[in-house]
């Protein structure tokens, strides 16, 4: 199953999928996309990589720390809910928005986006963790 074609494809797909996932994550608020989809995409990058090179190698990748990202994701999501509270809102998960402007480009940032980042990390972490664990059992 570990063919050269798949290896080359996987190696190149991985960064592409990761960047794509970030784009999908950011644009999710206004266009199709969002944390769940982006998280699945990012996880997919690692799944394909593991399929091509084997789990052992995939686990050595720099970002392959699924448990850490799962925890981080939930932490970020929870923290994003607290920001509103700190700003004096009455209930948890009240949105706070700011706009960063770089010349003509403006970047709209808000706690919902932060929350979506948490979702993204958790979903990706979960996916990678599950698939890796099951794959390890295979070997």
């Amino acid at each position: 199953m570990k063919t050269e074609i798949l290896k080359i494809a996987a190696a190149h797909l991985k960064p592409f999928l990761l960047i794509l996932s970030l784009v999908v994550l950011y644009r999710g608020h206004n266009e199709p996309g969002g944390g769940f989809i982006a998280g699945l995409l990012a996880g997919m990058a690692y799944v394909i990589y593991a399929g091509a090179f084997g789990v052992g190698k995939a686990k050595q990748l720099r970002l392959a720390k699924p448990m850490f990202f799962m925890g981080l994701g939930i932490g970020i999501a929870l923290f994003s809910g607290m920001i509103g509270l700190m700003n004096g809102a009455e209930s948890i998960f009240t949105g706070v928005w700011t706009t960063l402007t770089f010349g003509t480009y403006s970047l709209k940032l808000g706690t919902p986006l932060l929350f979506d980042l948490g979702v993204y990390l958790t979903v990706a972490g979960m996916l990678v963790k599950i698939i890796f664990t099951v794959m390890e059992e295979d070997v």
Binding site: H29, N30, G33, G34, G35, F93, P112
Partner: peptide, 18 residues
């Protein structure tokens, strides 16, 4: 947010999503 589905998930019902 224009994507209402996403807005529901991350804003209106964020606690559920959490």
């Amino acid at each position: 947010g224009e994507n209402i589905v996403n807005v529901i998930l991350v804003d209106f019902r964020a606690l559920d999503t959490l």
